[in-house]
Design a protein around this nucleic acid. Structure first.
Lengths: 190, 190
DNA sequence: TTAAAAACTTGAACTACTTCAAGAAATTCA
DNA sequence: TGAATTTCTTGAAGTAGTTCAAGTTTTTAA
């Protein structure tokens, strides 16, 4: 079976066999254990990650010392801190595996040379980033217009399999309410 | 003086003189009057907009009939609905001028042919989109971790000139609190 | 230059959520 | 398997914000 990243790229652009060879020679799978971090706050992020299997999250530790999940990434999603990556500034985020995962980690230097060798890859990254940006715009809309209960039901309706996969308290913080309130929503006690 | 879009592009990639000619022949400035819409909810968005002068916003109308501003775009920013653009689905958003503005509107077909003629432009759009995405990740962090008052002061400290430029009620909704509460924050009555 | 429209302010009443504390249930792994 | 850890639940008390309604100030445009 072909590398799932290559399959994903082929959904957006066409690749010459020679491009596929180049990609395959550069990309390797790394296994990340549940709870392991691939980025911590304060570090400069020099790598972008493609999730082949498993689930990663981006989170912060807030002023009360509590974790807040800002983003999840499952199979076929990219995750990184683009601001740290592009501006060479310390990251504000943690990136962590929440399941035993397999990711393709592409270092900035490796990516730069790949983009030179396969210029068409710029197009792939442009399109997937624009689509993610669009999804984030919708997310902000939901955060702004729905109540906590509506956000929970909406998420549950659209991603029922995903809801089973992550701890409820992480999903609660991703939807911007407390774990206790989530319990009450689920119990119908609101 | 050269087209401000071309100057912006040259910050990220190099352009051949012939590329500049191609760009200049394709791009034209349109004037948008204050309050005029360039996209309305339900329409399919087939255009991306670069703000040359003035200020645009993305907003929605919530279930109570009130406007909520989700995004601003001033000089040298792009604004569009990427989800509607890429997926050919009706937009959830309005795009409107909040000052008399000049934008470069690039239609999808025009953009596609430009990207074929000047493949390096893919790189430009990839980079600016990734940087915007990074900025949006930070915005979500601020929304999640700061109180209304902290968000107001933080925004005021970082973008004092901008605060002068837009009506307070739009800024209040962008920061996700009510116009009345903003008045109280400013008066020190919280 | 004035009338109309848009934007801002204020206080009082309300509410959707948080916080805390403690216990119960589920999961992990030695 | 069973002890430790992690996750989930519950109720009571508190609060950061909203909503409403009315008045004031500022801006717009004929």
């Amino acid at each position: 079976m072909q590398n799932s990243l290559i399959l994903h790229i082929k959904k957006f652009i066409s690749l010459e066999p020679s491009d596929i060879d180049k990609l395959e020679s550069c990309l390797e799978l790394s296994k990340i254990k549940k709870k392991e971090h691939i980025l911590e706050e304060g570090q400069i992020c020099n790598t972008i990650y493609f999730v082949v299997r498993g689930c990663m999250r981006q989170y912060i530790i807030n002023s009360k010392g509590a974790e807040q999940t800002l983003q999840f990434a499952i199979e076929n999603w990219w995750i990184t801190d683009y601001l740290s990556y592009h501006n060479h500034i310390p990251s504000s985020f943690y990136l962590q595996a929440i399941e035993n995962s397999e990711v393709i980690a592409i270092d900035k230097n490796v990516l730069e040379s790949l983009l030179i060798e396969i210029p068409n890859l710029e197009r792939y990254f442009r399109i997937v980033t624009q689509k993610s940006f669009g999804a984030t715009q919708m997310r902000i809309k939901y955060l702004f217009t729905m109540s906590a209960e509506e956000r929970y039901h909406h998420f549950n309706d659209h991603f029922p399999e995903f809801v089973q996969r992550v701890p409820q308290y992480m999903l609660a913080s991703y939807l911007d309410f407390s774990a206790e309130f989530m319990s009450k929503i689920r119990a119908g006690k609101v």
